[in-house]
Write a protein that binds this DNA or RNA. Structure first.
Lengths: 134, 134
DNA sequence: GTAGGAATTCCAGTGACTGGAAGGTCAAGG
DNA sequence: CCTTGACCTTCCAGTCACTGGAATTCCTAC
């Protein structure tokens, strides 16, 4: 199977697949013409990677997940721990963004948004200013 | 004012401040010894940048915000438009993360997380498998 | 034989820094 | 006068996960 077909089958771009080979996530065979020749297992791995990446796992997590996936004697606890750690990171990120969204919303609401220069958004960014000292 | 003091006053690292000069956000003077010599206006700008960055505005947005800030005849509508666009990006990102969090939570809950190898998380990542073909 | 599409490699760029090396400057202390 | 140590300087490399593009080769069809 050539890289274009694999790209279509996995949902990853050919560029990304070559990159994944570069960093050692997959090791496709090569044909006589130098073209990569992907086995079914490679395509399977790439679909696995595609899904894991879409869930926001880092490449490093993906590497670990793949090795756990291929380890028939793994403990599901190891996988769960990884997923939980990632979930906590996602929770944290969401909380951070929600905080920032609150501030942004507040600022946007306060700004009348017309042709005049007065702007509470810029005033906020500029920070507290002494009353007597413009 | 030297870079260390400015770093403390602005909440940015000295490295970051040098970087901001590199990309043209600020232009501090230089003393005879080659050290940067920050004016009050520079510190003010850096605090502005620090705050804008902490609200998630990109460096490019910051550049625009700064120029609007310094343009006495700006229209607040321009600032508001920028902030609203950013707010939409944040909303979008939160929605994306929330979707992915739902999936992760679901998977984590389904995984018993013990010493056995059976793992719904890995099964999900591996994708649909034909029933007769392991 | 020629056009095209798809494959190859390699280099550079993204965003916003961060780390580290190698060296210059300054104030204090012996 | 010399050293120590904190601070400053520049420059290069690395981060993360790709992505774009150039130059070249391969295969297929007409």
């Amino acid at each position: 199977m050539k890289i274009g077909d694999v790209a279509e089958a996995s949902g990853l771009s050919a560029k990304t697949i070559r990159y994944y080979e570069d960093i050692g996530l997959i090791r496709p065979l090569r044909g006589e013409n130098g073209y990569r020749d992907f086995a079914r297992a490679d395509v399977h791995k790439l679909r696995f990677l595609s899904r894991a990446r879409s869930l926001g796992f880092s490449i490093n997590d993906c590497r670990l997940l793949l090795s756990l996936y291929e380890d028939r004697s793994r403990a599901s606890a190891d996988v769960k721990a990884l997923a939980e750690a990632h979930l906590r990171r996602v929770d944290h990120k969401i909380a951070e963004l929600e905080g920032l969204r609150g501030t942004l919303r507040h600022l946007v609401m306060q700004c009348h948004g017309d042709e005049r220069p007065e702007c509470p958004i810029l005033d906020d960014l500029a920070g507290p200013k002494a009353a007597h000292d413009g």
